[in-house]
């Protein structure tokens, strides 16, 4: 089952339409095509990180300078970034646009992702991080714009969960 090039392209175009100029990312198989598209786009600065915690710092720096940014990470990377989300983004009121590949849920046949899949939403709820699903091309741009509106107005991290349904071909 291949990753959807069409929806990866749509995600890339949506980021651009929302004024995102800096993207930090760590590859995960669902994210490889969209990261490649962003890397080829001279209008977005792609920063490839070694660990997802760095993304929180990069987004904070960009925000302080008035530049819109996004993070492209898998949900296990979100787990790895919990400390800076709390001790930097929450503490200093930094909006984060966290696009999270929602591995380990229905449709995912790689069982090692399942433990992370089952704790992702409970952890987002525990951290009081507003989140929504990106599960169809029709609603994608509207949901991203609404998430950005909330993040920027409230200076909060928000999460957009990229589902199997959106990211994988049927």
């Amino acid at each position: 089952m291949p990753v959807s090039e069409t929806n990866s392209h749509l995600l890339h175009q949506t980021l651009k339409a929302c004024g995102i100029q800096v993207v930090s990312a760590l590859p995960e198989s669902w994210l490889v095509p969209v990261i490649r598209m962003i890397g080829d786009d001279p209008r977005i600065r792609l920063i490839r990180v070694a660990k997802e915690e760095e993304c929180v710092g990069i987004s904070a720096g960009a925000h302080f300078a008035g530049v819109k940014s996004a993070m492209l990470i898998p949900n296990h990377g979100f787990l790895a970034a919990v400390n800076p989300i709390v001790s930097l983004a929450h503490l200093y009121k930094v909006p984060l646009m966290m696009f999270i590949a929602y591995r380990g849920t229905f449709g995912d046949t790689y069982s090692w992702h399942t433990p992370g899949g089952t704790v992702t939403e409970p952890l987002l709820q525990t951290l009081r991080i507003p989140y929504t699903m990106l599960d169809s091309p029709e609603s994608l741009e509207r949901r991203v714009r609404d998430a950005q509106a909330l993040a920027d107005a409230s200076l909060l991290p928000v999460a957009l969960l990229l589902t199997h349904e959106l990211m994988m071909e049927a």
């Binding site: 920063i47 915690e53 760095e54 990069i58 904070a60 720096g61 925000h63 300078a65």
Partner: peptide
């Protein structure tokens, strides 16, 4: 650990 990551976000912006 993240001072340099913030610095990088500032540097590209």
């Amino acid at each position: 650990g993240l001072a340099s990551s913030i610095g990088l976000g500032l540097a590209v912006s």
